[in-house]
């Protein structure tokens, strides 16, 4: 049972990440390779605040989200002036910078050793000390991300994001300051990714840089693409597929080293098949980008 709950918790964390990235990549058409960096900012913020200052989880989550949103501004304001492939490359560069900081700022992050001993959280006296409690908390986080992204995408703000996704020139010609909208979407997306990072840190009780590499960004992008960009259930389905199906490999009797490599093959093959036969994802209406 604990194993199943563990899958639910991980799926909830990835759903939060996928929903947050969908606001940027699916709704706005901005493919960012830096999502793992914001996930990491949330995780490290929570880890540091919980271990050094013993702050409650709600405070550390909010601090992580705020920190990620502020850092996103430093990235987005210059890089969002770039278009398409150049923007992707800029976010890749930022991801590499953040990873280097996680890995090399030893005084703050403890470098490759990571931060251990992150306490299990307590919310208004309710101690989250079992997998089913973490699963409830994970679902709450995913619901919160859904709520925020849903509210924004079904509002005039979301309408402008969709206009930017399909034709930014049109959006500018009707008087929309597209840079402002993209910066706002980037900040919200980063903040929600950070909330997933906070939950991850408290659940695993340990963070190190290897959890926040560019491969993690690519995994979340795969979830958005496979589920269906800019669709309500796409991120949830994408996260569920990519979290649960590889787990099935555990039961095939293959040696664990082989199964781990097969997982990467599975991701790659699934992406190729989706791009060939269903570019709009499992439940999406639009192809990626435009």
């Amino acid at each position: 049972m604990d194993y199943l709950l563990h899958i639910v918790i991980i799926a909830a964390i990835y759903t939060t990440l996928a929903v947050s990235l969908d606001l940027l990549a699916g709704q706005t058409g901005l493919l960012s390779l830096a999502h793992a960096a914001f996930y990491g900012i949330g995780a490290y913020s929570s880890a540091l605040l919980a271990t050094a200052l013993h702050l409650p989880i709600l405070v550390s989550v909010l601090a992580g989200m705020l920190c990620a949103a502020v850092v996103s501004l430093l990235v987005s304001v210059p890089s969002l002036r770039l278009h398409d492939d150049y923007f992707v490359i800029a976010t890749f560069g930022f991801q590499m910078i953040l990873f280097s900081i996680f890995n090399n700022w030893v005084d703050l992050t403890h470098g490759p050793l990571g931060i251990a001993g992150i306490p299990q959280p307590t919310i208004f006296g309710w101690q989250i000390n079992s997998n089913w409690k973490f699963a409830c908390l994970g679902l709450l986080f995913a619901c919160f991300a859904y709520f925020v992204v849903g509210r924004l995408s079904h509002s005039p703000f979301g309408r402008v994001l969709r206009a930017i996704r399909q034709d930014e020139v049109f959006a500018r010609s009707i008087g929309k300051n597209t840079l402002k909208f993209k910066v706002a979407a980037f900040a919200v997306s980063a903040a929600l990714a950070a909330s997933a990072g906070s939950l991850y840190a408290h659940y695993i009780s340990y963070v190190d840089p290897s959890s926040f590499t560019v491969m993690e960004s690519i995994l979340v992008i795969s979830m958005v693409i496979i589920g269906g960009p800019a669709s309500t259930w796409g991120p949830l389905i994408g996260a569920a597929v990519l979290v649960t199906l590889p787990e099935a490999l555990r039961f095939t009797g293959l040696p664990s080293a082989v199964a781990a490599n097969l997982r990467q093959v599975f991701y790659g093959a699934l992406l190729v098949i989706m791009m060939m036969f269903r570019p709009q994802g499992l439940v999406g209406r639009y192809g990626f980008g435009r």
Partner: peptide
């Protein structure tokens, strides 16, 4: 240049100027 993937009405709505709902907090809090 139109947003062909959304409705005709949404194309016109998005062009309406200075909408309160285009700001982040009002969009979130309605």
């Amino acid at each position: 240049r139109l947003i062909t993937q959304v409705s005709v009405l949404d194309n016109v709505l998005v062009a309406c100027p200075a909408q309160r709902g285009e700001r982040l907090l009002p969009a979130l809090l309605r």
